[in-house]
Amino acid sequence: MRMYLLALNPTDSVTDGFLPAAARLGLDVTILTDQPAAHRQATPEAEVLECDVHDFRAVLTRIATHHGADAVFTNSDHLQTQAALAADYLGLPGKDWRVALRAKNKAEMRRHLAAAGIDPVRSAELAPGQDPSALTAAGLPYPCVVKPREGVASEDVRLAVDGEELVAHAKEIQARRPQAALVAEEYLAGDLHSLETLGDGRIRHVLGGFRTTVSAPPSFIEERHGFTAAHPEPVTAQVLAQLDALGVGFGACHTEFVVHEGRARLIEVNYRIIGDQSDLLLEQVLGIPLFEQILRTHLGEPLPADLGARRDGAGRLEYARADRAGTLTAAPTATDREEEGVRLVYRPLRALGAAHPLYRTNRDYLGVLRATGTDQAAVDRAVDRFFATERWEITP
C-alpha cells in the first residue's frame, strides 16, 4: 500500500514518528515536498519527490504521474486543506477540506463558532497590505492579541495594551510577512491547556492533554508542557462541543484553549497531532502505537473502542531557550538515560557554532527534554535537576 505524505520542512513528528510508524505498517511512502533536499538529507532512505504542495492541483498531478495512492496524509498545519482535497478527489479516507480550512483560518474559525452561537470572540481581520489603523476602528477591547490568520507555534503573536501598540505590532508583522492576512481578537484570560484527540469519523478518543507554560507577554512562547491525563469533565465537554461545532472528528487534533473560572475558550485548533516532540512524549506516556493508529485512520481502518492506553503515565517536556542573540558555544549533547524510574530524552535543536538572532518564537529553542515515568513528582525532580546541572552558553 502506498501513502503520499505532504510536507514542507522536515519535522521530528515525521522523521521520528510517522515514517518509522509507516515502515512498521509495511507502507510504501512517497514524500511530496517543496523542500526535497532537506528531506533527502533527513531521511535518505525515503522516496522524495519535489512538488508545489501548497497547490492541491499540483499534488494530484504528481500522484497521477507516479503510482496509485492508498492514502494521502500530512501532519503540516499549512497543508491540511490541500491533503484533504486531494484525498477527497481520489476517493480516499481523509478530513473534510472545509473543516480543515476553518480550523486553520483563525478568522473563519471565529466566524463559524459565532454563527453557531458558541463562545463568540470579538475579532477583526486585516488583509495583506491593508493599513493596520483599520484595526483600531473595529471596537476591540484592550488588551487584545494580533497574529497571522494562518499562523502557527505562537510565531508573531503579540499582545497589545492599546491602539498604538496594536498598530505598531501589526506593522512589524506585516514587514516580516507582507503576504499574510492578520487577525486581532480580544485577549482570552486563563491558564493555557491543550486537548489531544483521535477520531475516525465514527468514534473519537480523548488522549489527554497538556498544561502549557508560556513566556511573559507581549510574546507567547511555549516553555513547558506538562502531561494531563484528564481535564475536569465539564472543561473537556466544553472543548468537545466546540470541536463538534467546527466539524472536527477525523484523525488527530491538537486543540489549545484557556480555562478561566471554569469556562473553556478556544485559542486555536491545529488539525494534526501536537508537535515539537510533545507527540513523541504523548506516545511514550500512553504506551500505545499512536503514530500507527493515526496512519491507520487515513488508510480507512476503524479505531478500536479501546486504544489500550495506560492510565498511570506522567510526563513533562521542557525547552532550553536562547535569551539573547549570538553564537551557541556550549550545550549538552543528545542524551538518553533513566534515573529514579524516569526516562530522560534530550535532543539538541541548535548546532554548536550556530549564530542566530533572538526571534522571540520557538525558533529560539536550543534543545528539548522529554521526561516520562509513573510518578509526576519524580518526573519534575528529574527535569529540574537536568536543567540545574547542564549549561547552554551563547556568545554575543
Rank of each mutant, 00 (worst) to 15 (best):
V379S: 00
Q130N: 09
L349W: 03
R224D: 14
T15Q: 04
V248A: 04
A21G: 11
P332M: 07
Q41C: 11
A354E: 13
E301L: 10
E125A: 05
I294P: 00
G300L: 03
Y89D: 11
Q242S: 12
D34S: 10
M3Q: 05
H260W: 13
E164T: 15
V285H: 03
L282Q: 08
H54F: 12
L344E: 14
E164F: 10
L60R: 09
A331D: 00
A334V: 08
V99C: 05
R57I: 08
E292I: 00
G94D: 03
Y365A: 12
A309Q: 09
Q174R: 15
I288D: 12
R211P: 05
G373H: 12
F257C: 07
R316V: 14
D244G: 12
A86D: 02
P302S: 02
A86Y: 03
Y271E: 10
D191S: 11
G353S: 07
R310E: 08
A184L: 09
A184D: 06
R296D: 00
F18R: 02
A241T: 13
H356D: 12
T11M: 10
K147C: 02
E268R: 06
A230H: 15
A87C: 12
F291S: 03
A107Q: 13
Q238N: 14
V214F: 09
E50T: 09
D28S: 13
R158L: 13
L188A: 05
I63Q: 07
Q41S: 13
E186I: 00
E233I: 07
R347D: 09
T74Y: 06
V152I: 09
G199F: 13
P304H: 07
P20V: 10
R272C: 09
D55H: 00
K104C: 00
V368F: 08
R337A: 14
D55A: 02
L19Q: 01
L159M: 15
G139K: 09
H66M: 10
S76Q: 10
A355C: 15
V258W: 05
L113M: 10
Q242Y: 04
V59M: 03
D191K: 10
R385D: 14
A241F: 09
G209C: 05
G68S: 13
L25W: 05
Q376V: 05
L79M: 14
A378D: 11
V53Q: 01
L8R: 13
E338C: 07
G163H: 02
G275T: 00
Q238P: 11
F18M: 12
L266G: 06
E196H: 03
L358R: 06
E292T: 01
L135W: 06
L6H: 02
Y346F: 12
P93D: 07
D276H: 06
L79D: 00
K106H: 11
Q80F: 11
F220P: 03
R360Y: 15
F386A: 07
G151T: 10
L207H: 00
